[in-house]
Amino acid sequence: MEKSEQTITYEPPKMPDVRSVSFADIGNALKAGVSDFLKAPLFGLFFGGIFAIGGWFILASLTYLEMPWMIIPVAIGFPLIGPFVAVGLYEVSRRLAAGQPLVWKEILLVIFRQRERQLSWMAFVVLFIFWLWIYQVRLLLALFLGFQSFSSIPRFLEIITTTHEGMLFVGVGTISGAILSLFLFSATVISMPLLLDRELDFVSAMITSFKTVLKSPGPMIAWGIVVVALAILAMLPAFIGLIVILPILGHATWHLYETAIGSQDKQP
């Protein structure tokens, strides 16, 4: 008796269609982000507070380790992990757009369930690139400022702004950091809300995110600059500004995703 052989065929995931994004869409997304924050301020303050507490923890840790000079590069790289922290904000915006109730238990449960989905792999990618940023800073410090001494932030700023080695460190670090940030931004700006919204593998989500940036490079890069600039300004007063700025940026990112891809709730 012959056994029947079953042929298993692999069907690649259906890639989402990518639409063009304009500069006007960037402005509209930011306005919608402010609107969502005002509609659900407690959720925004909660998730923004988590981000601010993380910043305070880093400040305290570096101070305890007597490495205050690392506060600046860590603060610059800190926004890199923003998209992952903003997952809860995406869910709030999704529910507001779909007319669904905002229930704390349900929203927190959605976040908790992401550990079993592809979003957890994206978290690994984000944290890995953040680690690369910190390692890069340490490497450049060793190459350009290995024989310098800086035990405080003022001393560190003095060295990097008044010495030839310090200026080389700033120049090379800025270029390499910009490349790393552009890569991470392109990989996550759409993939994070996309993975929350749909069942898709993280590689396909990253490809879709890159496609979005490549299709509308001007507006998307402008959005990245806005995000970094606002995040850095929000961190200057001891990370306090992040309590408000992060929620607005998180909500705005969801609306940008809806413009570029379209959430499942709005699919025909």
Score class of each variant (00 low, 15 high):
S4L: 14
I8V: 12
M15W: 03
P16L: 02
V21S: 01
S22I: 01
F23W: 11
G27S: 02
K31I: 12
K31Q: 13
A32Y: 00
L38S: 11
A40E: 07
A40R: 02
P41D: 03
F46H: 04
F47H: 07
G49R: 03
G49M: 09
F51T: 10
F57Q: 06
I58K: 07
I58F: 14
I58S: 11
L59F: 11
A60G: 12
T63N: 12
T63I: 12
Y64D: 11
M67C: 08
P68A: 04
I71F: 13
I72G: 03
P73Y: 05
P73S: 07
I76C: 04
P79E: 04
I81D: 04
G82N: 05
P83L: 00
F84M: 14
A86I: 07
A86M: 10
G88I: 11
L89V: 10
E91Y: 01
L96H: 02
A97K: 09
A97C: 10
Q100M: 14
V103S: 13
K105M: 14
I107D: 06
L108E: 05
L108W: 10
R115C: 09
R115I: 15
Q118T: 08
S120Q: 13
S120Y: 12
W121I: 08
F124S: 13
I129C: 14
F130L: 15
W133P: 09
V137G: 13
R138C: 12
L141Q: 15
L145S: 12
F147A: 15
S149F: 15
F150H: 05
P154L: 03
P154H: 03
T161E: 01
T162H: 03
T163G: 03
H164D: 09
L168R: 07
V172H: 07
I175L: 15
I175S: 10
S176P: 07
G177W: 04
I179H: 02
L180H: 01
L182G: 14
L194M: 06
D197W: 00
R198S: 15
A205D: 06
A205R: 05
S209N: 00
F210A: 01
K211V: 05
L214T: 08
P217L: 01
P219M: 00
P219L: 02
A222F: 14
I225M: 09
L230T: 06
A231T: 15
A231K: 01
L236G: 10
P237H: 06
A238Y: 06
F239Y: 13
F239G: 07
I245A: 08
L249T: 05
G250P: 03
A252Q: 00
L256A: 01
E258F: 00
Q264C: 04
